[in-house]
Measured scan of single mutants.
Amino acid sequence: AQASVVANQLIPINTYLTLVMMRSEVVTPVGIPAEDIPRLVSMQVNRAVPLGTTLMPDMVKGYA
C-alpha cells in the first residue's frame, strides 16, 4: 500500500511546511504520496491541518 503524508502536529493556516510537521503513514483515503515530502518542504498550507490529518493536494498552495 502507498504511504501518504500525515500531519505530525497541528499545522496552522498559512504555515510553511517543515520535515518535523509531516510523517508518512498508510491511510485511507490516500493523500499526497509520502515520496513528495521533500517537495512539500517550504510550501504553505491554505487551511489549519489538525494532528493526524492526511494532507490532500488541495490543502497545499502550489502543490496540485
Rank of each mutant, 00 (worst) to 15 (best):
A48S: 14
A3G: 14
L17Y: 00
M22N: 00
P38Y: 07
T15V: 14
S42Y: 08
M21C: 03
I13S: 11
M43R: 05
V49P: 01
N14K: 05
V6C: 03
L55W: 01
N46D: 12
L10T: 10
D36K: 06
P29Y: 04
A34C: 04
A64Q: 13
N8A: 13
L40H: 00
R39C: 10
A64F: 03
L19N: 10
S4T: 06
I37S: 08
A48T: 15
R47M: 15
E25T: 05
Y16A: 15
G62N: 11
D36C: 05
V30C: 03
D36A: 10
P12T: 13
V30I: 14
R47P: 02
A48F: 12
G31F: 02
S4I: 01
L19I: 12
T18N: 10
S24L: 05
P12C: 03
M43N: 09
Q2M: 13
E25D: 14
L55Q: 00
V27L: 12
N8M: 11
L19T: 14
D36Y: 07
V60M: 06
Q44A: 09
M21N: 09
D36V: 06
V45P: 04
A1H: 05
Y16F: 13
L17D: 01
P57H: 09
R39F: 14
V26S: 09
R23S: 09
P29G: 05
P50L: 08
Y63H: 07
M43V: 07
L19A: 14
P33D: 13
V41Q: 10
T15Y: 13
N46K: 08
M22P: 00
N8G: 09
A48M: 10
P33L: 10
I32N: 01
R39M: 11
V20F: 15
G52L: 06
S4P: 01
M56P: 01
E35H: 13
T15N: 06
L17M: 13
L17K: 00
N8S: 11
M21P: 00
P38N: 15
I32L: 08
E25V: 04
V26W: 04
K61D: 08
R47Q: 10
I37L: 15
T54W: 02
R23M: 08
R23D: 06
T53V: 15
I13D: 09
T53H: 08
V45T: 13
V27Q: 14
K61Y: 14
A64H: 12
V5E: 02
L10N: 13
A34P: 09
I37V: 11
P38F: 09
L51F: 12
V6H: 02
Y63F: 11
E35P: 10
V60S: 01
Q2D: 13
T54Y: 02
I13Q: 13
